[in-house]
Design a protein around this nucleic acid. Sequence first.
DNA 1: ACTTCACTTAACTCCTTCGTTAATTAACGA
DNA 2: TCGTTAATTAACGAAGGAGTTAAGTGAAGT
Lengths: 109, 109
Amino acid sequence: MTDRLSVIFSALADPTRRAILARLAEGEATVTELAEPFDISLPAISRHLKVLEAAGLISRSRSAQWRSSRLEAAPLREATAWMERYRRFWDDNFTRLDAHLKRLQEDDS
Amino acid sequence: MTDRLSVIFSALADPTRRAILARLAEGEATVTELAEPFDISLPAISRHLKVLEAAGLISRSRSAQWRSSRLEAAPLREATAWMERYRRFWDDNFTRLDAHLKRLQEDDS
DNA sequence: ACTTCACTTAACTCCTTCGTTAATTAACGA
DNA sequence: TCGTTAATTAACGAAGGAGTTAAGTGAAGT
């Protein structure tokens, strides 16, 4: 489980971490600010942030005693890129396009 | 961790399972066929398939003693839908669009 | 200097996941 | 019916989350 995609997907597999990302979409926030909506301890949040950072989903900076987190969505691009490979299996437009291309190919023969 | 997205993301967090999905993109396959490229036991594969099925990423059918798996990509749509919320944080076009919309809004005032 | 604030690290528990081998089920073929 | 093939279930162990409380770090405020 040492590959990037696995790290990204398992970071996203936790609802608390997804909620943290959602919060960060509204702007940077400190650890205590991020912890506020949740009923779990600060150390637990601290570790969630570590996981998100390891996945590249956030970056962190410190000023004085505050460590503020910032959303870094680039890994989501990687993840979606992987999923795109399967788009034709779910997307109606793609399915139609696929059928269209198939028809063209048959016309070729 | 009982929500759909978590189940989907953690199903995708395993490289073996992603490889299985990749294989299934080429067509249905039986358990032994799916197991073939991997250096792990059949029971292990069997459980991976169970996880994928629980996430809705595959469906299974049986004929005689063979259980064949089929890719069901719909959950990937859900997962990408969630990620799309963050697209403006990574996609250049979205960033430009965003800036454009901001400019329009400023013109309104 | 001492305290307080913001956060992390350590040590521990509980539960789940991923793998194993051995046993079981279920269907087919002779 | 008996053996073979395909796959699952059972029972187990190692490793890894995710949570806890308690202790430690480091900068700021007084």
